[in-house]
Amino acid sequence: MKSKVVPTIKLYDYLLVPIQIELDDNTVERLQMQILHEIHENDVRGIIIDVSMVDVIDSYISFVLSETAGMAKAMGCHTVICGIQPQVALTLAQMGIRLKDIITARSLEDAIDILDELD
């Protein structure tokens, strides 16, 4: 596999994906492939995507994130997103975007709690 777009952390049987880079279209697509491969290789039950460092999420980025969550779901894996900045949340809501197949959490701890309860 090619070099990772984002360094990830395996925590219990969850995969933590902290996004700390500017998400351009190419990066977000490579990130999708990376996540899917990591789910497959590491026997991951849940993905936690932390976007607290991301200050713009547009329709395409949110689409690819939802799409990734759908693919992960097909592999038996839940996707939780946490750390959406308030102004990003307002923007997404105003555009009418729903993050399909993604559970939203208030924080990393909350995300882990939610995944724990999904067993």
Partner: peptide, 17 residues
């Protein structure tokens, strides 16, 4: 405002795409 800055940046992102 920070919310409007984000909305403007997002709109430009969509237009550019």
């Amino acid at each position: 405002s920070l919310a409007d800055v984000t909305k403007i940046a997002t709109a430009v992102s969509e237009l550019a795409r």
